[in-house]
């Protein structure tokens, strides 16, 4: 016990030279995405259970309304029209409940350990929201494949598919940050679950996912214009189906929403860390 203390060995305790902020944030995003992928691979049931609802939307609602032809969707069949809406919705559902994981990590003491690693809070939130996007993308790929199987002709152009992926990533960053903001405010899993359930359907209906904005009452049109989901759906329709649209403004809105989401959620992270 009374061994005289020795000097620190050169290769221990020297730390690692700090890197520039962008490289640091990038490496944290990779770290959290890898972990999310590993978790997903250890438990794939969620991928299946969460796919059931959107598949029902497509198969039951989509097929039925395609026959009825009640909704004017231009050159697209109704099933084609709504498929990008359902794809975006399935990603949004994953994102909206992502904050539950942050609260769980806080209660389990994991968040405290993450916060004392050399990771700035913005990088931690960015990492977590990209990780949510990994999970959402896995979900979206499943729904995309189901859509193709039930006869929704989609693009096979890899660049367009990549663009669609980017749109889903941006949308997920926004909605997962919204979820983490709510987590920082209510700080309870049950309340976040309740709020999540209360807002997902309104967000879904107040977007262009199921019907063209021009069909909505004016007040809903305003809501839809303020809803990032509308821009995600619109860009997916353009990229996947070649529907006319404005990709530049869609991506501009989604990028601004994602950045604002990350800033807001990192501001509130301190409340969870306390």
């Amino acid at each position: 016990m009374s061994v005289p203390p020795v000097a620190p060995r050169a290769d221990w305790g020297s730390g690692v030279a700090p890197r520039n902020a962008v490289a640091l944030a990038g490496s944290r995003i990779v770290a959290f995405c890898v972990v999310e992928w590993q978790k997903l691979m250890h438990d794939r049931t969620e991928l299946v259970t969460r796919a059931i609802q959107p598949v029902l939307w497509l198969v039951v609602f989509g097929e039925t309304f395609s026959r009825v032809r009640a909704i004017p969707t231009g050159s697209l069949s109704y099933l084609q029209y709504m498929a990008p809406g359902i794809i975006a919705q399935s990603g949004m559902f994953v994102a909206i409940f992502y904050g539950i994981q942050i609260i769980w990590e806080r209660d389990a003491g994991i968040l405290a350990k993450l916060l004392v690693t050399p990771t700035p809070r913005v990088a931690l939130i960015a990492g977590k929201s990209f990780a949510a996007a990994v999970r959402a993308l896995a979900m979206v790929v499943v729904i995309l494949l189901v859509s193709v199987v039930i006869g929704v002709g989609m693009t096979a152009n890899p660049l367009r598919l990549l663009g669609a992926g980017a749109s889903v990533v941006l949308g997920t960053i926004f909605f997962s940050c919204l979820s983490m903001v709510i987590a920082g405010l209510v700080m309870s899993r049950d309340r976040l679950m309740g709020i999540g359930q209360a807002i997902t359907m309104p967000l879904f209906f107040a977007s262009s996912a199921l019907y063209p904005v021009s069909m909505m009452p004016t007040w809903l049109q305003h809501l839809s214009t303020a809803n990032p989901l509308s821009y995600e759906v619109s860009s997916l329709r353009t990229l996947l189906l070649g529907n006319p649209g404005n990709l530049w403004s869609d991506f501009a809105v989604l990028t601004v929403a994602a950045v604002l989401g990350i800033i807001a959620a990192s501001r509130l992270l301190g409340r969870l860390a306390r």
């Binding site: 730390g15 690692v16 978790k39 003491g109 350990k113 004392v116 690693t117 050399p118």
Partner: peptide, 14 residues
Amino acid sequence: RRLIGYVPQQLSIE
């Protein structure tokens, strides 16, 4: 933070 390795009171792993 770069100098410290920390184990909290609560058992906390993923």
